Structures are given as C-alpha cells and as structure tokens.
Amino acid sequence: MSPEQWPVRVLLVEDDVRVARVNRDLLERDPAVHVVGSAASCAQGDALARALQPDLILLDVHLPDGSGLGLLHHWRAAGILTDVALITAADDEPSVRLALAHGAFDYLIKPFTGARLAELVARHRARRPTAAGGPRLDQAELDRVLNVTSSASESLPRGIDPHTLERVAAALRDAQTSVSAEELGERVGLSRVTAWRYLEHLVRVGEATLDHVYGQSGRPAKLYRAARV
C-alpha cells in the first residue's frame, strides 16, 4: 500500500453542525479517510480523543465550553501526541503562533478549499513514518517529519514544497502508465492545478517526460510519466 492510500481515522471537534457535516463530506471523498467521531465541545472532544484514539484531530478554536487551543495544550501536557490541525475562523496571528507552539502541524482558516483540506490529510500521511514499517528513523526520514529543509531544496522555485514534490515524484514512479495531472492529483490528494505545477517542474528538471495525446476533440491531453534512469 502506497503512503497516499494509508487509512486515516479522523476526529472532528467543531460546534457548528453544518460545518462539521461539510468537513466530513470533504474528507470522505478520499475512500481511505474515515471520520470516526464528531464533538461539539472541549469536553466531548477530550473524551472522544481518549476513547477513539484517532490518527488525526481537526480542531476548532472557539468552542462553547472553552478554547480549542487550551484543549490542544491539555492534550500535549498529558502526553497525547496525536496529529492535530486547527480549522477555524480565528485568523489572528497570536492564535496561529499559539497553535503551532502547542504542536499543531497545520492551520486552516475558514473558509478553505477542498483541495487544501486534502493537502492537509496528505501532509498528515507524510508525517507517519511508522506506517511504512518500524519505529526507527534514519536522518532523511527524521528531517521530513520535522519539516527540515535541506540546502538542496533551497534552490526549488517558489511555490514548490520539497515534501510535496517528493510525494508527487514517488506517485509518478509508482504509476504503471502515463497519467494526467488530474489523475495524479487524485492519488496524492492535490488539486489538478497543483499537481500540474509539480509535474511541470519534474519535466523541467528531467525527472519526468511529457506526452501529448490527441483525442477525438482535437485538443491534446498532457500525460506524464517518470523519466527512465
């Protein structure tokens, strides 16, 4: 099973029922993502996090009985290291800084796109080295988990994230046939436009090749495949 197919069990902590339903629908577009619980308060969220032990928690800041930031701090103090991402309308810099200081690995400001939410899930999968087998890490794996950027990645064009590039390149190498940007984006949880941008970069650096296939409409389709070494 490739990393982009790893199952993800998600807990939603969101007091707006409509928003929680929309987020659930967006998440479960990925057949390997399962929302295992939904809480509308800090107390419910804490209880479900301990009972369900999800892989990923999506947490609001403003909750009826307290702050999601306080709940996150409580979890970390208790040694609960589950991946937590904030999904909230709180767009002030102190909230963002506090969330990151307490160990949130991502922060989405409402409203957000389905593609950005899918990218959050993909980042969570990329942070799970033990899912690939074994608790031990080499330095490259540890740098990826810690989001350490190597000197080689500093030369990447603006808008090209080294870890996302690694996932796109790996998915392209795993593909049995040439794929479109849309097909590859679905495999790694990226929008078609984002996948296209990374694929074009791989073509420019010689790690992928581009084929133009003409169909009945007369418009060429762009198909990408990994370059042969």
Rank of each mutant, 00 (worst) to 15 (best):
M1R: 15
R9D: 13
R24H: 08
R24T: 06
L27T: 01
D30L: 10
A32L: 05
V33L: 05
V35S: 11
A39R: 01
S41R: 00
Q44A: 15
Q44T: 06
A47R: 13
A47H: 06
R50D: 09
L59S: 08
L59P: 10
V61K: 14
V61N: 14
H62M: 13
H62P: 00
L63E: 04
D65E: 02
G70I: 00
H74W: 02
A77Y: 00
A78P: 00
T82L: 01
A85G: 10
D92L: 12
S95T: 12
R97M: 13
L100E: 12
F105Q: 04
L108A: 06
K110F: 10
F112L: 07
R116W: 04
L117D: 11
L120P: 06
H124D: 01
T130S: 08
R136H: 03
Q139T: 10
E141K: 03
L142W: 10
D143I: 00
V145R: 07
L146D: 09
T149M: 12
S151M: 03
A152D: 05
S155I: 00
L156W: 07
R158E: 13
I160A: 03
H163I: 09
T164F: 04
L165M: 08
L165K: 08
A169R: 15
D174W: 07
D174N: 09
Q176M: 07
S178M: 06
V179M: 13
E183Q: 15
E186H: 12
L190D: 11
A195W: 11
W196G: 07
W196I: 00
W196N: 15
W196D: 14
Y198R: 13
E200P: 00
V205P: 05
T209Y: 10
R219E: 12
K222C: 14
V229W: 12
